[in-house]
Design a protein around this nucleic acid. Sequence first.
DNA 1: GCAACTTGCTAATCCGATTTAACAACGGAG
DNA 2: CTCCGTTGTTAAATCGGATTAGCAAGTTGC
Lengths: 344, 344
Amino acid sequence: MPERRVTMADVARKAGVSPTTASFALSGRTDMRISDASRERVLVAARELGYRPNVTARSLRTKSTQTIGLVSDRITTTPFAGDVIRGALEAARERDHLLFITEAGGDREAESSLVHALLDRQVDAVIYASMFTRYITPPKELYGRRVVLLNCLAPGFDAPSAVPDEIEAGRDAARALLAAGHTEGIWSIGGHQAVPATPEGIIAGNERMRGLEEVLRAGGARLDGVVECDWDTRDGHREVTALLAAGHRPRALVCMTDRVSLGAYQALGEAGLSVPGDVSVVSFDDQDIASVLRPALTTLKLPHYQLGRLAVELILGEGPLEAVVHRVPMPLQDRASIGTPAEG
Amino acid sequence: MPERRVTMADVARKAGVSPTTASFALSGRTDMRISDASRERVLVAARELGYRPNVTARSLRTKSTQTIGLVSDRITTTPFAGDVIRGALEAARERDHLLFITEAGGDREAESSLVHALLDRQVDAVIYASMFTRYITPPKELYGRRVVLLNCLAPGFDAPSAVPDEIEAGRDAARALLAAGHTEGIWSIGGHQAVPATPEGIIAGNERMRGLEEVLRAGGARLDGVVECDWDTRDGHREVTALLAAGHRPRALVCMTDRVSLGAYQALGEAGLSVPGDVSVVSFDDQDIASVLRPALTTLKLPHYQLGRLAVELILGEGPLEAVVHRVPMPLQDRASIGTPAEG
DNA sequence: GCAACTTGCTAATCCGATTTAACAACGGAG
DNA sequence: CTCCGTTGTTAAATCGGATTAGCAAGTTGC
């Protein structure tokens, strides 16, 4: 049976001082004068009794619970976004904070009620997270609170955002292709996701394409074509198959996700084309499959761990939060799917 | 700025009653006599003021925080185990509870300090979770507390466990093969994981193999061989390649994980063998790739969502927890990788 | 008509800390 | 020998609820 917890009163009694003195000694405040002797006695008593402060009781007075709430749509669900949680968890632990994780499944009402549940428990701050980068409107309960937006943007809402630097990732994809000598026969599979399954999901597509085209153009190259489609394996397979069937002979594919790349690999394989011998592939996201495909996929990694970590670091930083957009680099995972262009 | 929260005292004042009456009216207790008129006035006042009880303050008195802690080694990290979190989250939400998620990375000291951090915050109960099924020793801080073990077993520790029913899964794999007509040329790739990267990680392997062999034998079939190896893509690829090179001609592979299956697919493909025309494949886990491979992989799903949900349901159930092992079924995801045995 | 209940409500206390205000004891200045 | 400031300590209030004990007023019993 969990025996009664040791309270500060127990410590004070054992040390032969008042609870007030014990409190000051334990909190180590210097503005209240406690003799070294008393302080020592309290500390020893606390150690011997295995005293641990009751955070709940403390926070009733201080208002601070050393606790952060994280509200997401479905962030824990997506296969690799667990990294967001891990980054946030580690950063929180380094600072002796705990995280409430919640998931609203995209339901506004659930979102509100979860935020209430968090506020009822006196969380110090809230991280509002999205599964994919998009514009959002935070629930009204969050206005005026200490908030950081993770993987989403809310213009007009006074809070910092942490998002992947998709534009620079697009540029890096182009640079990797140019460096290997690619200047023509370059196709984008997935494009801007202009007709996406998710109407808000256009940030990643637009920004990746913008960076890609900018650097390609500056390097004297260009895109032969952009295939607009959804971003799943099936789409990649279908569209690349169609592309080849239409008589095109691409030298390099820029696939907008690793899942699209997998579909592209399958379609190329079925057509007897090899990667990267016949066709180079560069991708985005760095999901699990990327490193396991044959050949291993060169891709720009979504910095989930860093995003989670940054969100916590921002929220636990000193001073007021400023409505700044923090763009986190997407590192190039340089593997084996880019080669020199195949001969005519 | 977040204006001062509405307290029960505010509600009482507005309703013209004492805080005591307000408390009773709001908590809806029937053992204290409150007139319908007063109750109604309090409820209206609370609604108009948007009153929400301060859970922190309440729990100081009641000891219950409506909060559960989850301690895991690295559960948020593994690609698909986010489902565990989701299951737990949903079950908790249905019961108006919130979850503290923590991750100790396998470090005993970190584990202890996290459990302390949870207890300091007065969590009602703790779920101790493992990434893969294994035997564990819970940190001593958990003894005598309300605990459920998720995906792990601790003989002698007085708490229920929720684990996948690996034995039955092994049986189901065998049944699926038998049903398709396979009786010979059956190989296990991965085996018991008798020399595993993780010395504790033998439960899944042993139990899957046990169920598999039991039903195969009862069905008049048997295993031609068991290839003991680690359970990753690379291992599957290497071992199946070696198997074929040694002149064996398997009709069905039982791969111990989907990653092993992916490796097997690659090796079979390179050898010009087709799935399931030449070789059938049945697998375990049902990771993301399983449904996306070509042909889609028939596999026994690790019931992560159900495990998470069950753990919470157990912990929030009435009465004392009993040290029972709950085996959660692993449903067969019947896809396209099993066919009738190839001729001679 | 008075004791014994019932009904409806509230004052006071508690939970475990933090924090404010005040109070002894002592030393030095004048 | 006072007066004042310093030092070390503590009583009491506070945070926002839950709970216990008790108190008026109205009802019933005989």
